[in-house]
Design a protein around this nucleic acid. Sequence first.
DNA 1: TCTATTAATCGTAATATTGCAATAAACAAA
DNA 2: TTTGTTTATTGCAATATTACGATTAATAGA
Lengths: 110, 110
Amino acid sequence: MGLTKSEIFTAQQNTIATFAKVLGHPARVAILEHLYKIKSCVCGDLVDEIGLAQPTISQHLKELKQVGLIKGTIEGTRVCYCIDDDKWITMKAVIHEFLDQDLTKNQECC
Amino acid sequence: MGLTKSEIFTAQQNTIATFAKVLGHPARVAILEHLYKIKSCVCGDLVDEIGLAQPTISQHLKELKQVGLIKGTIEGTRVCYCIDDDKWITMKAVIHEFLDQDLTKNQECC
DNA sequence: TCTATTAATCGTAATATTGCAATAAACAAA
DNA sequence: TTTGTTTATTGCAATATTACGATTAATAGA
């Protein structure tokens, strides 16, 4: 079907999945890494930096913007993209909480 | 195309994306959470716990198994699934490293 | 052996994702 | 106004994902 049944999961589970999903493509990982490295950030730079066509980059930026991880400011003909630090911190907290579950070994089976 | 151009990204970027992708569905998040809570872990339990059909759960388990996050041991007619702690630790390290990039505010733009 | 139980696989339908060429939109500068 | 620059949008093709019914495979137990 290709359609996720989000209703049957908790809000937390859906939140984790939403953040993880957007990180689930190397281009978006690369974009975020690049936005961290440089201070002034423009889409054109990203097209050069990453080896994908401009519409493709634009689309990945859109997805990152939709979950709120980046924000874009129009500056003339250019758009200045940068990471939304608050959202990044939220994502970090959500994913960390999930990943840092207690590693009590399940020795009873396996 | 639907086909990710992994060649143009670094191994680290691809690794992050691979782990994130598998966490990018609430059912798989729920499965992992459940496997953490209980010690003895069986596929049937998961079908009851999560509200998806048995073939669907089986498919999600397969994806988790493919990235190595879980392992299954056959026990009679049942299969005992549990988290591969080593792989979990690897994933944690990889994702933490990415998420904990220095939050040096990009005040120069935005 | 026959039956029940459990999980994997197959097949299929619906939808989503990835990628890009072509085009549009928005603005700066000549 | 015209031209160039930059980013977004549209439209499309190819592939991937999600979900499930039907079936199969494997084993336990009567």
